[in-house]
Amino acid sequence: MARILAIDDDDAILRLIRKMLEMKNHEVTTLLNIKEITIEEINRYNLILLDVMMPGEDGFKICEKIRPLIDIPIIFMTAKSDENSIIKGLSIGGDDYIVKPFSIHEVNARIEAHLRRESRPKRGSKSVFIDGDILFDLEAKKVIIQGDEVSFTKTQYRICELLALHKGKIFSKDDIYESVYSIESDSQISTIVEHIRVIRKKYAQFNLVPINTVWGVGYIWE
């Protein structure tokens, strides 16, 4: 059994997909648009079925937005059958492209093929940490928020990573200083406050407030 997410603005299509996949004992979630789910929730699925022609953000834009944040198969299901659309869908991160009207047997066969491929042992998979719309690439030392890479200094990144990887734990300014600065550093502990201020400002651009102050104690990622 796999967890499959289907996104399409057509209720009839979603009902058909749900019935078809539940007969194969898959767990299916259907959505009319991407606004109803977070990146963290998307990463709990094994495969995504994605319509292209939808109001607002179309399937191509959605794929471009979420592909850097997820590592699961994305299968486009669309009436756009021209070669340019197919090439675009595959080039921006789609794993497959099924043209409507589709055969139920074809859809099932392609889904099962991708699920089998995903179940094979993976080598060299990228180490990431995801919290809601925030993704940390722990190898590249990058932060991606809602699909956009955000620029942090090395010290700011270390502070973010420290707090995020210990979500719910309170760190004092001394704790943070000792964790992110080298023993030989001549920086002042007071610089931690300024770094936190700048970090918060960058997250605020995305209407996010992951770092909170515990007055008289320190800072916590919530």
Rank of each mutant, 00 (worst) to 15 (best):
residue 210 P to Q: 02
residue 220 I to L: 03
residue 176 I to H: 13
residue 82 D to S: 08
residue 45 Y to S: 10
residue 6 A to V: 06
residue 173 K to S: 10
residue 100 K to F: 08
residue 186 D to F: 10
residue 18 R to C: 02
residue 177 Y to L: 07
residue 177 Y to K: 11
residue 168 G to Y: 08
residue 211 I to S: 05
residue 199 I to M: 13
residue 192 I to Q: 14
residue 115 L to T: 06
residue 114 H to Y: 04
residue 109 A to K: 01
residue 128 V to M: 09
residue 170 I to D: 07
residue 79 A to M: 13
residue 197 R to M: 14
residue 163 L to I: 08
residue 5 L to R: 01
residue 210 P to I: 00
residue 74 I to Y: 04
residue 33 N to I: 06
residue 109 A to I: 01
residue 172 S to C: 11
residue 145 I to F: 03
residue 164 A to C: 15
residue 43 N to A: 11
residue 54 M to Q: 09
residue 66 I to M: 00
residue 184 E to T: 15
residue 162 L to R: 08
residue 152 F to K: 05
residue 43 N to C: 13
residue 53 M to P: 01
residue 127 S to Y: 10
residue 59 G to I: 13
residue 26 H to Q: 00
residue 6 A to S: 15
residue 125 S to E: 07
residue 99 V to G: 05
residue 100 K to C: 02
residue 63 C to I: 07
residue 205 Q to G: 06
residue 81 S to A: 15
residue 164 A to K: 09
residue 181 Y to N: 15
residue 113 A to G: 04
residue 180 V to T: 08
residue 155 T to A: 12
residue 105 H to C: 00
residue 114 H to P: 01
residue 192 I to Y: 11
residue 156 Q to I: 12
residue 180 V to D: 05
residue 222 E to S: 07
residue 6 A to L: 06
residue 216 G to N: 11
residue 74 I to Q: 09
residue 78 T to L: 07
residue 102 F to G: 00
residue 133 D to K: 03
residue 41 E to N: 12
residue 109 A to V: 02
residue 183 I to M: 13
residue 34 I to M: 11
residue 120 R to L: 15
residue 100 K to P: 02
residue 131 D to K: 10
residue 173 K to A: 11
residue 22 E to R: 08
residue 198 V to S: 10
residue 213 T to Q: 11
residue 130 I to Y: 06
residue 178 E to M: 13
residue 202 K to L: 12
residue 129 F to R: 07
residue 99 V to I: 15
residue 96 D to P: 03
residue 102 F to I: 03
residue 206 F to W: 08
residue 75 I to H: 03
residue 59 G to E: 10
residue 99 V to S: 06
residue 177 Y to I: 09
residue 129 F to C: 07
residue 105 H to V: 02
residue 36 E to S: 09
residue 168 G to K: 05
residue 203 Y to A: 15
residue 72 I to D: 12
residue 75 I to R: 04
residue 106 E to N: 06
residue 221 W to E: 09
residue 3 R to A: 03
residue 172 S to W: 13
residue 143 V to I: 14
residue 184 E to N: 12
residue 74 I to N: 06
residue 50 L to D: 04
residue 39 I to K: 00
residue 218 G to Y: 03
residue 66 I to W: 01
residue 180 V to N: 13
residue 111 I to K: 02
residue 12 A to P: 00
residue 195 H to L: 12
residue 89 G to S: 10
residue 17 I to H: 00
residue 146 Q to G: 06
residue 66 I to F: 01
residue 181 Y to W: 15
residue 100 K to E: 05
residue 202 K to W: 07
residue 135 L to H: 03
residue 159 I to L: 15
residue 144 I to E: 09
residue 20 M to G: 00
residue 200 R to N: 14
residue 214 V to S: 05
residue 149 E to W: 09
residue 190 S to T: 15
residue 196 I to Q: 11
residue 21 L to A: 02
residue 3 R to Q: 05
residue 54 M to A: 04
residue 141 K to W: 02
residue 13 I to G: 02
residue 135 L to T: 08
residue 118 E to M: 12
residue 220 I to E: 11
residue 207 N to K: 07
residue 60 F to R: 09
residue 118 E to W: 03
residue 16 L to Q: 04
residue 85 S to V: 08
residue 164 A to G: 05
